[in-house]
Design a protein around this nucleic acid. Structure first.
Lengths: 343, 343
DNA sequence: TTGAAAGCGCTAACAT
DNA sequence: ATGTTAGCGCTTTCAA
């Protein structure tokens, strides 16, 4: 029942009448240790069930081989897939991954970022909460020159690496697609436009309308948090307009889904009477009826890229820092919810 | 560009002409420090931008306030939701969460478990890989008396806390439901039955058939890894039998979905001609057409419970250890894919 | 109420 | 090829 004190390199050293440093070197495969000594040491280490104490090593080397990730919600498909991508690359490079979720609360995000710092993560990868519009809490990392990568919801103007998709182009593509399908009056449901993602999608939407000489109308743009409930409220509001839209480009798939459910319940046919395009390519979008046209972001690849970037930065600290913003490719996936032409 | 050395308690001590221990005590709100001293210290700490070095503290106190989680795949909804539940409780209790995915590979699982140990996590929460049928790699934790919680896919016979659902009862309920709906010949698609989850679901299935005086037939039971592809192959095989089934209870929703897609493509009507029940209540199950009847596991709550259990164990190390197996409630959600009676 | 001193387990100059 | 020594930054016993 009692916790047996762990075996340390000193235990091994004592037993073999050598010094702890030799043991340390041997276990780290330092070439300056004689092969026979190494073998002796490793054999005994195995026999005694020695397990290195990473904490001690971390303290000594000032390096934790740990990457922190902060996302709004761990169990959102986009984020969990991103995390999976990070973990893949990190694991292969010998890094651990420590994760927290902000729950879209600025205050929690701030706490987490501080905690990650105190835990001396070697780098931090993050996508901002819906409430985040100031970035002082990340200054801690910038000041200490600790690598920082923003993805998806980024801090505009903050000097750091960033991984995004071209949300403007996505918004444009989605809207242009609806126009091409013959929809006449296209609305947009946006998320909080303090966030670059939702802001840019909306601008892309507007730009497409303008390019096609269609009027921008304030009443056709609704901003909320894009939950299922939000989607339903939005579509109700839109249908209640004197001059309601015949299509909506939604800021995410969840709200698009709830709109579809509501429209179906009202006997409004999709895509014949009403067109919908969502965002993110959630797993359900492909299999729901009608299937949801959407924009696919390469979540796994974004995570991998983020990990590569940050590990590279961690391991090349001395190089003059140059920050890049990497734009990953997206794909407009046209499905039933907007495909009049196939009918 | 150069990394400015961090402020330590010694810097604060020097500046105030006091000892580092006093600073340490003050910052930790030790009651034996005079209030005025405390305030002076905290003010200076703030001014200098002091951030505690958790690593050093961890080494000294032999406690990391970190919980390790090992799951097969981070971006499976059940697992990411479980993780979210753990993180919620852990964060509130001042614990960090470090995560790795085994990718259902035993070897990776072993590596991860060792690495988690070396990182001196205070406890480990895990769901086994599909390849795991021996558990020596967890012995490390058991030997050192480090709290260990298995969930979902557990190590039978291993002395540890466990959080599960009653998979046997689930299998029984699902099958009984299909029988009640009038299906005559019910097949089962199982995952690797070395895992308790899939094994128990299958036994539940068998038990329901027996109870209803229906024959058990080997050809109606297929085992694979339950991917989409696996589901499709399985349903093809089943339909090719001389005497094919008219319903399937699937070990997960993914394979159930792929069966539905295939059946629809063959013009087989669901639920009229064929009944399907899945497992896990993936987000898509509710919205696909036909919607999928399934068993709902309380993933978030399981995660919370796991965190509570392990934190309690961590913080009451001295108590004689008693291991519990907690069975969480499940719910059979009846939807279109098996609801003949509603038609 | 505060300080001195030791040490958690490891690594890395610097010696030999 | 190996040993000596110092110390990473913190906590904690013991002493004052």
């Amino acid at each position: 029942m009692e916790r047996k004190a762990s075996v340390t390199i000193h235990d091994i050293a004592r037993e073999l009448n050598i010094s702890a440093s030799t043991v340390s070197r041997a276990l780290n495969d330092n070439p300056r240790i004689r092969k026979s000594t190494k073998e002796k040491i490793k054999a005994l280490a195995l026999e005694l069930g020695y397990q290195p104490n990473t904490i001690a090593s971390n303290l000594r080397t000032q390096k934790t081989h740990t990457i922190g990730i902060v996302v709004p919600l761990i169990n959102r498909h986009f984020f969990s897939t991103f995390i999976s991508g990070v973990e893949d690359v990190a694991f292969d490079a010998g890094y651990n991954v420590i994760i927290s979720q902000s729950k879209d609360l600025l205050q929690k995000e701030q706490q987490i970022v501080n905690s990650m710092f105190s835990n001396r993560v070697d780098g931090l990868i993050t996508s901002l909460s819906m409430q985040t519009s100031a970035f002082e809490h990340f200054q801690l990392f910038a000041n200490k020159n600790i690598p920082l990568v923003f993805f998806d919801r980024i801090a505009p103007g903050f000097e750091a690496n960033k991984i995004i998709v071209d949300d403007f182009a996505c918004g444009f593509k989605a809207t242009q697609h609806l126009i091409d399908e013959g929809y006449q009056r296209i609305a947009h449901l946006a998320g909080p436009t303090v966030l670059n993602t939702y802001h840019d999608r909306m601008e892309g939407y507007k730009s497409a309308l303008i390019k096609n000489n269609m009027p921008l109308e304030d009443e056709l743009i609704i901003c909320n948090r894009l939950t299922r409930m939000d989607g339903q409220e939005a579509i109700k509001k839109l249908l209640d307009l004197k001059n309601p839209p015949d299509a909506v480009f939604c800021g995410n798939d969840t709200s698009a889904l709830s709109m579809i459910v509501y429209l179906k319940s009202q006997g409004i046919r999709i895509p014949e009477d009403f067109g919908i395009v969502g965002f993110s390519n959630e797993p359900f979008s492909e299999v729901v009826t009608p299937s949801i046209s959407t924009l696919k972001q390469p979540a796994q690849e974004m995570g991998q890229k983020a990990a590569e970037l940050i590990i590279n930065e961690i391991e090349n600290k001395e190089l003059p820092r140059t920050y890049q913003t990497i734009t990953m490719p997206t794909e407009l996936i046209v499905r039933e919810s907007s495909s009049r032409k196939f009918n």
